[in-house]
Design a binder for these strands. Structure first.
Lengths: 337, 337
DNA sequence: TCCTGGCACTCCGTGGTCCTCAGTGCTAAT
DNA sequence: ATTAGCACTGAGGACCACGGAGTGCCAGGA
């Protein structure tokens, strides 16, 4: 059905269209790529490709444009991830080193990725679930309130004020803190529920109410808010593109954190590059965009995702290379913390 | 020079242009507004207004459009802040109540403001400088590291890891923590430098190095990062507007936090509404936008600013009303925390 | 003195026509 | 199977005419 040459034609169509943003015709193709055949032959191949739905014509006497299906084939079989230039690698390193805390690492990463790809970059904060507890701090705030601060090994800090505990006794708080840390320091957050299960009976009855309240907030804060935090950069790069959908729809989608989280979350193969093209995205406003995403983490433990959103007409090999490289570097930086 | 009627004409021009986004002519003005004079008279007034630079013509046979100077006069003398409808007030309340922590208050506020004004909203986190210390926590992390967590009365939490302290002695940390809290709990952050000045001599010599290191990081974290944090929402609303400058430039400016901070910071009259129109903004990309900003705070203590960015052609009275109302509500919410 | 109706003028935007041109599909020849 | 040749198609640009909105100016009236 699709012989070697037809595939070469498809590849050429994708590459040219990405470069020029104009429908590409058989003559231009024969000129720019050494396909070794005449425009007429290319035309015949194009008819076949169009029948199979890989390319399409905006109107009768125009050149061809890849369809989502065409891009999909291109990404899967016709291209390879483009490694970064050494200049780009150096840029990454100088950009990411010197960040003092997690917030800054994330902020720099997202800006770096936006700059490298000239598109919109998304970085998700390291998931709490997969990291482990470094320390739990309980601070009596006066009145009936206690502030709980959970510090993870990825440098993330989660804080919550717990109210309505009845009388807060300072030594009771100290005891509870010590007990908590003994039970869960060093554990993966996923293991925390099991680890604290049998704590309440060990607390003297007069403070048990407080202990239960603190534990329930602790557990709640681990499950509830774990993967919510996301950062964007490079939205200005969208202004240069003309979308089939209105720019407004795209910007609106990007402001919905829940949408982005789902987008990143839908990776097929963890720890691999994932590419979702055009209508493969469930969200209306993102029907004419593609998303390239990857996991990052420490060792082979995935902590969260990063990704890039751009027009379906994007430089897939280059974008994939940038996303992969940045994901790796961030992992290294986090490991070094 | 500018009699009552000319001012009325200017007001009418601004209002109509904001509504229709089309140059407004003398006939349309005479029809829509009860000015009590004929189009010819209005034309004469328009000539005067144009000579004084308040309005201008895109081309010879077109209607008039307000200039920045025209908007300025309109805002200063010809309009009043428009109070919100009761429906809008109710929306604010239901939107802001139920937020559990500072992050959520800020996030909800910025989205609320974007929604009310249908423009881009900016909210600055409450300044550390003007709030006071609730508690300082020091947590030994093992090795030579200590984590410092400063909790303020506005619910903000500032954390820092301090490294390279030499041997970290647990009791020394406990002593230092107690001493620190005695010295600065309840104080305004601005007073902290004075309050800790005479602490080092009170620390036993063998732990003095650690104490000095902790103090210097504490002071540094108060001055350095105090007003950096800013949140945006509603950029999608920009897509509907056509700017003189390219949309890209505007989006780029909005991504530069430092620019936004300066913009908000340049309020003339603290605790009042500030409006900066078009070229009054120092930043290139924002020459065709206006910014309406206001302080918010608890009592008469200003903590930070909120603002709205939109085209110079914006509904000033409505926007000002929304900004003022939201600023007040946020203040109340923060006070209740 | 100020306002107004009338009038000639200007220029934008629209719609129609024509033409060019890139690109196609088809057919016949190699 | 490939290619050259050719007729056909539709988008887009140039050109033009025209209607309409809006102006500036002037002369007459309150």
């Amino acid at each position: 059905m699709l012989d070697e040459r037809k595939l070469a034609v498809l590849r050429a169509v994708v590459e040219d269209f990405v470069n020029t943003n104009e429908p590409v015709g058989s003559r231009a193709l024969a000129d720019r790529h050494r396909l070794g055949v005449s425009p007429a032959t290319i035309r015949n191949d194009m008819v076949a490709l169009e029948e199979d739905g890989y390319i399409t014509q905006p109107h009768t006497s125009a050149g061809r444009v890849p369809t989502d299906k065409g891009y999909r084939l291109f990404v899967d079989r016709l291209s390879s991830v483009k490694p970064l230039s050494t200049a780009e690698r150096r840029a990454i390193e100088s950009f990411l080193t010197g960040a003092v805390d997690l917030d800054e690492i994330v902020a720099r990463t997202v800006r770096l990725l936006a700059q490298l790809t000239r598109q919109v970059a998304i970085v998700q904060y390291p998931s709490l679930t997969r990291s482990s507890v470094q320390h739990v701090e309980l601070v009596p705030l006066g009145g009936q309130r206690v502030m709980m601060v959970v510090i993870t090994n990825t440098g993330r800090v989660e804080q919550r004020v717990i109210d309505g505990l009845g009388e807060v006794n300072e030594t009771a708080v100290n005891d509870l803190r010590a007990m908590l840390n003994r039970a869960i320091a060093g554990r993966h957050l996923g293991d925390v529920p099991d680890a604290v299960e049998d704590l309440p009976p060990q607390v003297p009855p007069e403070h048990r109410q407080m202990a239960v309240a603190v534990l329930s907030v602790l557990l709640e804060s681990l499950v509830e808010r774990h993967e919510e935090k996301i950062v964007l950069a490079g939205t200005a790069n969208l202004a240069a593109v003309d979308f089939a959908a209105s720019l407004r729809d795209v910007l609106e989608a990007l402001e919905e954190n829940m949408v982005l989280i789902r987008l990143l979350g839908e990776a097929k193969d963890p720890s691999m590059l994932t590419v979702r093209i055009g209508a493969e995205n469930f969200h209306e406003g993102l029907r004419s965009t593609s998303i390239v995403s990857a996991d990052y983490g420490v060792g082979n433990q995935s902590l969260a995702k990063i990704g890039v959103v751009g027009p379906t007409r994007m430089d897939y090999p280059g974008t994939m290379g940038a996303v992969r490289a940045v994901a790796r570097y961030v992992g290294q930086i986090l490991a070094g913390q």
